[in-house]
Structures are given as structure tokens and as C-alpha cells.
Nucleic acid binder design. Structure first.
Lengths: 336, 336
DNA sequence: ATGAAAGCGCTAACAA
DNA sequence: TTGTTAGCGCTTTCAT
């Protein structure tokens, strides 16, 4: 990089001190209008841009937010990034994105990088592999505000923003039942994730509420396209296979529909399928997927708003974690 | 943020000078083994982490790369981010992602933010709106290495990494012709984008090569789902509508298939459709989409590798821009 | 083998 | 109204 114009350059050329230039540049009232305009003019000519790094060092603040997510390529998370970015941008913060790629090891490194970069705050959705949370504790120990979203844990004393997983699942399964299904399978996420637990619980309670017994044999651990496709083939080959399917996310739901098509089973005539997420793929699949919108963009916004509030808070003592759930909404299309 | 342990803290506690501590920490041979181990021990106990900001200021280097893309939610670009990140990560660089959201105005601001953050280099794919490139010139004037990818321009004297658009399009249209179509429409991107021009050219030449006359009435400007759906409805209602469709990207291709389904036209029996990109949606649509894989991940990797090379280059004089095209590959599925 | 001092670019308390 | 000085955390040249 070329040597950039500094305040000193301007000061020397104008026979002023650096402090005068600094003040003139930020319209300090002490500086005479004449000096002010002269300084600003030369600054413009030389293309002066304040050195953010120097500012960072001086202010001990980077106006940067660290965002750790499992995978950028997952539509839900890119929607979240958008929400985060919108708020950050409006408040003159920049966002550094780090991916764990669902790897615990990588996530630990991400946390270290975030720490090293001296971000002002961090937004985190942890990997599926993560069961130990001590690396996050380092952020907290350093008093870096942290907000967890979507994938959260109660083991850490931090803010949480999640989708209303329980309620979303409940409404979805309710809808399947109202469409006439009495035997309903659930393709679930790992149960050490709150999101896995809560969606299963919503499913469970919706069944019971309609006096449909809960059958563990109808619950499969399958939250990716691949695992769901395999599980769907297996379950659809059972005699008297279930006619309703509630998947923990859209990709799993679509895998179920693909498997059904492969077996010559028709959706929604023979079986009904509901997903969770409302990603782009939901309106591309055939039939188009009925699913629960979890408003990733909104979730990103809310998480970022809360984080900025924490960053700007002065009284860090008696910190009370906030837990907020974003409302979900059932989007009815053609698969159920 | 809490006050972090500094070299000075360690120095004082140990009755040493900051320079000794600094040297001990990086195994400088001058420092006695004893001092070295004592320093390191205390550093570990206090959880010392070098302050990257201070380093940045001193070294005039941030080990950060600025990445400006149109939209993170577009699968192709998130694949690119992954490629970039892989290389950056391996070389101990961090990536700051900025979205223009296809807005010229926002892109100009992005460039300023990138500049303010004193990144060591920038990777850029500009917005559809961008026709004036002077904001990018500022980066070049500051001697910040820049590599353009996917959306590139010859107006700037910079490196470029693109997909082999011409050849990919040529092969795709060739395939459609071989499947028996003689009347083939093209859904194109704006012609001020190289990618729009080159894919149209590939389409054009493939036709001519088979003695099929080029008909401008069969070329529609439609590179989003919405515009493509509308254009497809229009063109499919024409008497003797074309039977082959080559779309500039997958979303447009899927829109064509959706419009066809709406009109009761069968793919691939009645019309054949080929896309460009090979994003996730291509294997989700029904029928699954035949498309040209443009290897976003690879493209991101290559762009980043080239950028890092530029950053580390010492001789910046007689700079010769490199233009590289990543090979594409036709992925045959069920739509053609 | 270790320390003192200067400097990266900027700001702000204090002086004049 | 403007200038001097110190300091943010770190490295490195030049003493010692």
C-alpha cells in the first residue's frame, strides 16, 4: 500500500501543528474558520482519509463486530448476515464473518481470531459439533459483549435470540393433523441443540393435544439432505408408513419429497410434508413446500440491535441476560 | 472491553523492559533461555494476546482482505466466499465481506469502508448498476492490490478471474441443439456486463456453427426469477414458441420451467431448458436442471491466491494484469 | 543479555 | 486560537 496522507503531512505543508489540523478536521469550535477551511481544502486535495487503525488503537475500539456462523452457504445464515449487516451498517459498524463449517476445532480458532481482532462485540451461532463452551467463555471473560442466536446454550450467561421453535413446530404439526394425517413422522436435529429439542417438543405436544400417541419410531435423526433422503427411503418402505412428515428444516423436507417421488409416492396426495425455515428452495421444489418461516433476516437484525445495545451500555455490573424468541409463521404452499 | 494484558504489564511484574519481553515472546536469540521461559510463563498465566491493532499500526498491514460482492444470499457468491476464506484462512488473513446489494451507491460506500479499514487487498465483483468505475480507481491509486472476479471490466488496469463464460455457453447451447432443438431462446444478463456479453456470444456462435440463424427476438433480457418468469410466459404463449431455452443463470432457468408448468408445457418433453451456475437449486427443481457448473468455490480460491501473490509482490512497477478464466462444465440432469 | 528511545497516526489535557 | 506533549501497544535500532 502506498503511504497515505496523514495529518502530519497536512500540518507541515500548512505550517500548523498536528493538533490544530486534527481539530480543524472535526470542526472543533476553537479553530478559526479560516484555518478550518484551509485545512479541509488541502485535506481534500491530498485525499486525506483518517487512519482507522490509529483511531482503533487510541480509542480501544474497532467498530467491528465478529459474526461466527456454521455455514455461509446455508440460506438461513446468509439471510441472518443480511439482517446483521443492515443494522451494523446503519450504526457505522463493520462485520467480520467467520465460518465454523460445523467444526468445533475451527470454531475455537474463529473465537481466537475474533479475540485477536479486538472486535467490539460478537454474534455467535455455534456448530453442531460443539458441546463444550469454554472457548466462548474467553470472550465473556474479556468482557466482550456476546449475543448467541439460533443455536444457543444455557451453559453461558449471555443474551440469546432464537426463533420461536416450539411454537413454530407446534403450529406446523397442528396443520398436518388438520389435513387429516394421524401418523406423523418427525425428522429431527441433534438433541443437544435447543433447536432440535424444542422442535421435537412442539411436535410431541401437538400430537398429544390431538390424542395421537407419541411414537419414538417415527422420530428420525436427520437434518441434512443426505441423511434425510436415506431416512425417508427407509421409513417410506415400511408397511403402513406415516402419511405426515414434519422436518426440522427445508432441505430435509425436500429430501423426503425427492425420496417419495423416487418411490412413486405422491405429495401431497399420498403423504404430506412440512419443513422449517422458508428458504429459497421452498418455493422452487415441486410441489412447493409448506414450511415455517423463521425470519432469518429479522433474527439477524434483532441479534445485532441487542449486541449494539450491550456494546454501548456502560453499567456492565448485574448483567441480566435477555432471551428473545422471534415469532415464526406457517407458510402454506402445496406440499401439505 | 476489559483492559487486556499488555507487554508492559508483563515487563513491570518481572522488572524487565518492554523490549526484552517483546523479544522473549518471539524467541529472539539474544534473550537468555531463563528470561524467555519466565516471560512466556507469565504471559500464559495472564492470558496475554498480542494487540493486533497495535501491530497493524506499526506494520502498516492489517492482514485483512476486503471482499465486495453483490449479494451474499446468492448461492454463487456464498460459494465464492467459501473459496476465498479457505485460502485467506490458510495464509492467516481475515476476510471482511461487504455487499453492494446490486446498488452502485452502496458499492461506492463499500469501497470507502474498505479503504478506511486499510485492508491489504480487495476482491471485487461489482453490482449490476455499476457503469462508472472511478470509485475502484481510488483503491488502485492507493496501490491496494485489487482482483476483480466474475463481474469484471477492462476499463481498469487490474487482474481478473472469471468463469469461462463464452465456452460454457457454447457447450450448453450445443447440447440443446444435439437434443434436437432448432429454435432456441436465450435469457440474457445486461449487456454492459462481460458475463452477459460472453454468454450471449457463446449462444450466438453455437447457433451459427449449426447453421441456425440468430434471431434477436429470441433473446430476452431476463436474469432474475421474476423477470424470467414474466418473459417466459410471454415467449411460451407465442405460436411456434422456441423449444430450447438457455438461461444466463439457474434462477432464470427455473423460472422458465415454472412458467412452462403453469402453462401445461412439459419439460423436457415439450421444451428443454439449460441453466448456468449449478447452484443448490439446480438439483432441487423438478425436473432437475441441466446446467453449466461455474465452480464458484474454485473461482474464489483462484481470485484469493492471485490477490495474495499481488500483496506479497515487492516490485509493483511494470504491473501486468493477469486474466484467467476458470473452466466450466456442463452438468447433465433431466431438463435437457 | 538487556534497556532506552523513537515512531506508527491520532487525540486531548494542558500550556501559552 | 494554536502549540506542546504524552500516550494507545508494539517493535526495532542503537546504546550499554
Amino acid at each position: 500500500m502506498k503511504r497515505q496522507t496523514t495529518i502530519k503531512d497536512i500540518a507541515i505543508k500548512l505550517g500548523l501543528s498536528t493538533s490544530t489540523v486534527s481539530r480543524a478536521l472535526k470542526d472543533h469550535p476553537d479553530i478559526s474558520p479560516k484555518t478550518r477551511s484551509v485545512v479541509k481544502e488541502l485535506a481534500a486535495i491530498l485525499g486525506y482519509r483518517p487512519n482507522k487503525i490509529a483511531l482503533n488503537l487510541r480509542n480501544n475500539s474497532t467498530r467491528m463486530i465478529g459474526l461466527i456462523i456454521p455455514e455461509i452457504e446455508h440460506n438461513f445464515f446468509s439471510a441472518i448476515i443480511n439482517g446483521v449487516e443492515e443494522i451494523a451498517y446503519k450504526n457505522d459498524y463493520s462485520v467480520m464473518v467467520f465460518q465454523s463449517n460445523e467444526s468445533y476445532k475451527r470454531e475455537v480458532i474463529n473465537v481466537h481470531t475474533v479475540l485477536a481482532n479486538r472486535v467490539d462485540g460478537a454474534l455467535i451461532s455455534f456448530s453442531k459439533e460443539t458441546k463444550d463452551f469454554s472457548h466462548f467463555q474467553k470472550l465473556i471473560d474479556n468482557e466482550i459483549p456476546v449475543v448467541f442466536f439460533d443455536r444457543v446454550t444455557d451453559e453461558l450467561h449471555t443474551d440469546q435470540i432464537i426463533a420461536d421453535d416450539y411454537h413454530g413446530a407446534y403450529v406446523a404439526v397442528n396443520h398436518i393433523i388438520e389435513k387429516g394425517c394421524t401418523s406423523i413422522a418427525h425428522f429431527a436435529a441433534p438433541q443437544h441443540l435447543d433447536i432440535g429439542k424444542n422442535r421435537l417438543l412442539g411436535y410431541h405436544d401437538a400430537l398429544l393435544n390431538h390424542n395421537i400417541p407419541y411414537d419414538p419410531n417415527l422420530v428420525m435423526l436427520a437434518d441434512t439432505y443426505k441423511t434425510a433422503y436415506k431416512a425417508a427411503l427407509e421409513i417410506l418402505k415400511r408397511p403402513n408408513h406415516p402419511t405426515g412428515f414434519f422436518a426440522v428444516n427445508d432441505m430435509a423436507a425436500i429430501a423426503i419429497m425427492k425420496a417419495a417421488r423416487y418411490l412413486g409416492i405422491k405429495v401431497p396426495e399420498d403423504i404430506k410434508v412440512v419443513g422449517f425455515e422458508n428458504s429459497v428452495v421452498a418455493s422452487i421444489s415441486e410441489p412447493e413446500l409448506t414450511t415455517v418461516d423463521q425470519f432469518g433476516f429479522e433474527l439477524g437484525r434483532e441479534a445485532c440491535i441487542l449486541l449494539l445495545k450491550r456494546i454501548e451500555e456502560t453499567h456492565k455490573e448485574n448483567f441480566k441476560p435477555i432471551k428473545r424468541a422471534i415469532k415464526t409463521k406457517l407458510i402454506i404452499r402445496n406440499s401439505c
